[in-house]
Design a binder for these strands. Structure first.
Length: 359
DNA sequence: AACATTCTCAACCGCGGTGAT
DNA sequence: TATCACCGCGGTTGAGAATGT
C-alpha cells in the first residue's frame, strides 16, 4: 500500500468524499477550470491528491454525467464495441455520452460475473450449434494477435465469453428472427443467429435522415435525453417511419449476394439479407478498425513528433465517432412492415448491383 | 430477525505515455 | 539522452446495499 507518488509529500485524505469536499471541488472547477490537476487540491483547499480530484470530478461530479441503469441500446452498444476494441473502456465510454469508463467497466464486470455463473450450458449450446459458422461476435475476438486479452485470460474463457455474449444477444432477438420454424433460411457463411441488423448510413441516398449530431459537449445537459445522439437520430427516423435512411449497398456484396440464392418474397427473407449485409459490414468495420489500430501502433513505435501523434489520434477518434454515427442497429423494436419493405428493396438492389456500382 | 452471500460502484493502485528540462 | 512530473487508463479492492436462506 502507500500513497500516490504524486502526493507523497503531503498528508492527504483518502476514501469516500464528503459533501463538503465535493462542494469545494465543484466550486473550484466551475470557477477556475482544471488546467493542472496537481494544483487543484491546494487551490481548492482540499486534503486530496490531484489524481483523486480528477477521478472524483470525471467519474462523479462533472455536470454532464449521466447516472442510472444502462438502457438496452447502451447495453447493445457496449457489447458491440467491446467485441471490437476489447477492454478499452475509455474508448467505449467515448461513444456513450455521460457515461464514464469506470461505470462501463463496472457494469461489464458485474455483467460478466452474472453470466459466468451459468457458463457451461450456454457455452456448450452456443459453441456446438454450428461449428462451421462462427458466431458473429467471435469474429472480433478470434483475432487474438493484436486485440487486448479478455478480462479473464485464457482461450477457454475467451470462447466462453463469446458464447455468453452470443447467447445474451440471441435471447434478445425477436422470435421470428432467432430460431424456430419462422426463422429465415440458412445462408451460407451467415450466422443464422446474427442478433443485430447493422447498416452503414454513410452513403444513404436522398432523404439523408441521419445528420451528424453536434458534439455532446455542446448539447445542454438537460437535452442529452439519455440517448446517444446517433441512437436518438435513429429513433427519430423510426418514429417518422421514413425508409429513406435504409441502407445502401456495400462493396463486395455481390459475392455475398451470389451465396444467398434465395427468394425475396417476404420480409423475413429480406431481413435475412439485411442481416447478412449487416454482419458483413460489421466484419469489414472490425477489420478496418484493426488495421487502423495496427497502423497507429506502428506509427507510435516510430519517433513521431508529438503533434503528429495527436493529429493522428484526433483523426482516429474522429473516425470512430463518424463510424459510430453511421452504424445503425436494428432489433425487434424497429422491425416494422414498412422498413422490412425498404430492406427488401435494398436487398434486391444488393443482388442486382455490382460491388462498385454505387456512389 | 439474523446471518450469509452476492452485487454495486466509488475509489485506489500501478503502469505507460507524454512533455518539459 | 536521461530524468522527472504529470496525466490518463485499465485492473483491482473494499465498503455498503441488496438479496437470499
Amino acid at each position: 500500500m502507500g500513497h500516490h507518488s504524486c502526493c507523497n509529500q503531503q498528508k492527504v485524505k483518502r476514501g469516500l468524499w464528503s459533501p463538503e469536499e465535493d462542494e469545494k471541488l465543484i466550486r473550484y472547477i466551475t470557477t477556475h477550470g482544471y488546467g493542472c490537476w496537481s494544483e487543484v487540491p491546494e487551490k481548492a483547499g482540499l486534503q486530496r491528491c490531484g489524481k483523486s480530484c480528477r477521478l472524483r470530478w470525471i467519474n462523479y461530479l462533472r455536470p454532464d454525467i449521466r447516472r442510472g441503469r444502462f438502457t438496452a441500446e447502451e447495453e447493445k452498444l457496449i457489447i458491440s464495441l467491446h467485441a471490437i476494441v476489447g477492454n478499452r473502456w475509455a474508448h467505449i465510454a467515448s461513444h456513450l455520452p455521460g457515461r464514464t469508463d469506470n461505470e462501463i467497466k463496472n457494469y461489464w464486470n458485474s455483467w460478466i460475473k452474472k453470466k459466468i455463473r451459468k457458463p457451461a450450458a450456454a457455452a456448450a449450446a452456443a459453441t456446438t450449434t454450428s461449428p462451421n459458422n462462427p458466431p458473429p461476435c467471435s469474429t472480433a475476438t478470434s483475432d487474438h494477435h493484436h486485440l487486448p486479452p479478455p478480462a479473464f485470460g485464457g482461450a477457454d474463457h475467451h470462447l466462453q465469453l463469446d458464447a455468453i455474449i452470443n447467447q445474451n444477444l440471441i435471447s434478445s432477438l425477436p422470435p421470428k428472427l432467432a430460431t424456430g420454424d419462422d426463422s429465415p433460411p440458412a445462408v451460407p457463411g451467415l450466422p443464422h443467429h446474427c442478433p443485430l441488423f447493422m447498416f452503414d448510413t454513410t452513403t444513404t441516398g436522398a432523404g439523408g435522415a441521419i445528420s451528424p449530431p453536434p458534439p455532446s459537449s455542446l448539447i445542454p445537459t438537460h437535452l442529452h435525453h439519455h440517448h446517444h445522439p446517433f441512437i436518438a437520430s435513429f429513433t427519430a427516423a423510426m418514429a417518422a417511419d421514413t425508409p429513406s435512411y435504409l441502407p445502401p449497398l456495400v462493396d463486395g456484396m455481390a459475392a455475398m449476394g451470389a451465396a444467398m440464392d434465395c427468394s425475396l418474397e417476404d420480409g423475413q427473407t429480406a431481413a435475412a439479407m439485411a442481416a447478412t449485409n449487416g454482419y458483413y459490414q460489421h466484419h469489414q468495420k472490425h477489420q478496418q478498425l484493426e488495421i487502423e489500430l495496427e497502423e497507429e501502433e506502428q506509427r507510435q513505435l516510430g519517433h513521431h513528433h508529438h503533434q503528429h501523434h495527436h493529429e493522428h489520434e484526433h483523426e482516429n477518434h474522429q473516425w470512430d465517432e463518424e463510424e459510430a454515427q453511421h452504424l445503425l442497429m436494428w432489433d425487434q423494436e424497429v422491425l416494422t412492415s414498412s422498413n422490412l419493405e425498404a430492406m427488401q428493396s435494398g436487398a434486391h438492389s444488393l443482388l442486382f448491383m455490382g460491388p462498385n456500382d454505387h456512389d
